[in-house]
Design a protein around this nucleic acid. Structure first.
Length: 393
DNA sequence: CAACAGGAACAAA
DNA sequence: TTTGTTCCTGTTG
């Protein structure tokens, strides 16, 4: 793990931009600095970075939440129901351990200067740069010796008109992917925390005890200084009513960070909630309808279930004249979808049906019941976790 | 080992 | 009855 030179290479070579999105990558230097990076995407750096120098004056600054909102609105503009382009960004890309403590210690030896990284505003320009450099290069084995040139640390606040143009071109394809990935990761994290803490995803419902747990959890996970009883006796509702300034006043060093994280919970929790109780609006939903629902919202569920779009002609095209007639209707590769995260889909289904013991074993049994009904089947070439709707919309 | 196939009993609408 | 759910045995990659 030898590092050459100080500066940022140490950190970023370890991060390896090629490896795809991650969440909650946390580097903590001895006593001197702390770097937090979240939602690291292959083409996009969409989150905040923070480098703190303890002991000296605080150099770090949190880019949440205003910039986060900016990103979200920017991304949201481009998630117009299009499908995810490639499967290469599936779960497998998250090679990084979600556990901050599982990081190799090497990068921590040399400490970068206490600088404040403002990668946030360069999201799109970086995106463009990488896309142009290597448009979906199949694992270019990491430019030699962690080239600093791929270190996306650019402290520019301005986006040139030329960049804006390029943005238009690449946004369509890549941004909703990023959105999907980010939202998926955030949701996973939130769900994990909910399980561990036995709290709901919606902060509005928290009791003061829940609030305490959440605060403790968050400061532990992000290594914030302890706030003590700064939020004692506050319900989730109270907490949600507080703005960033209120947070800052209650606990000075980390109030804004806490507020930022609560902000994430609020927005994502709402989303989870909205999906969870959209059941209250009617008759018992059918499994196939539910699956369609998920497939309709790739920005929210693309991580766990998605359409498989096989372009005709790509790869080995079945263009035999003989087959043309025979393989017309049902045998087209229409309506084929893949369950990327079976456990997650099952959990969502269980949530919807109020069936906490639901799992993929049972869910898939239900899917299999559709075989003889002609609603869903296994596609012609059977693959794991891949099914096909027989009847179009 | 997880996905898959499908029988059987059961519950709820 | 229909549509799942739960549980299970066995197969497959």
């Amino acid at each position: 793990m030898g590092e050459e030179g100080g500066g940022m290479e140490g950190v970023f070579s370890n991060l390896s931009v090629e490896e795809g999105p991650r969440t909650h990558i946390v580097y903590t230097g001895q006593d001197t600095e702390e770097v937090r990076i979240e939602f690291w995407g292959r083409h996009t750096f969409c989150a905040f970075t923070l480098l703190q120098r303890r002991g000296k004056q605080n150099q770090g600054s949190v880019l949440y939440p205003s910039r986060r909102r900016k990103i979200h609105s920017r991304l949201d503009k481009h998630i117009s129901g299009t499908h995810l382009g490639s499967g290469k960004h599936g779960r497998g890309t998250c090679t990084g351990t979600p556990n901050p403590r599982g990081l190799p210690a090497g990068a921590l030896e040399r400490h970068p200067q206490g600088v404040y990284l403002s990668c946030f505003d360069t999201l799109l320009s970086e995106d463009v740069a990488w896309l142009l450099k290597a448009p979906e290069a199949p694992d270019a084995p990491q430019a030699p010796a962690a080239g600093p040139e791929q270190c996306p640390v650019i402290d520019s606040q301005v986006v040139s008109p030329a960049q804006v143009e390029l943005e238009e071109q690449v946004e369509d394809g890549s941004l909703e992917q990023v959105q999907t990935l980010v939202v998926g990761e955030v949701m996973k994290d939130i769900e994990t925390a909910c399980k561990l803490l036995n709290i709901t995803a919606d902060p509005m419902e928290w009791s003061s005890g829940n609030v305490q747990k959440w605060v403790l959890w968050t400061e532990h996970l992000y290594r914030l200084p302890h706030v003590g009883g700064a939020f004692r006796e506050l319900s989730g509702r109270d907490l949600c009513a507080m703005n960033e300034e209120d947070f800052r006043q209650r606990c000075l060093p980390s109030g804004d960070v806490l507020h930022a994280h609560l902000d994430i919970w609020k927005s994502e929790g709402e989303e989870l909630w909205a999906e969870a109780d959209s059941s209250c609006s009617g008759q018992p939903i059918h499994l196939w309808q539910f699956l369609r629902e998920l497939l309709l919202k790739p920005h929210a569920y693309g991580r766990c279930i998605r359409w498989l779009h096989k372009e005709k002609g790509a790869g080995q095209g079945e263009w035999d004249r003989g087959l043309e007639v025979k393989e017309s209707w049902e045998f087209r590769d229409r309506g084929i979808f893949k369950i990327e995260d079976s456990a997650h889909v099952a959990r969502l289904w269980g949530l919807r049906k109020n069936r906490p013991a639901m799992n993929y074993d049972k869910l898939s049994r239900s899917i299999r019941q559709y075989y003889k009904k002609g609603i869903i089947r296994k596609p012609a070439v059977s693959q794991r976790l891949v099914y096909q709707f027989l009847h179009p919309v």
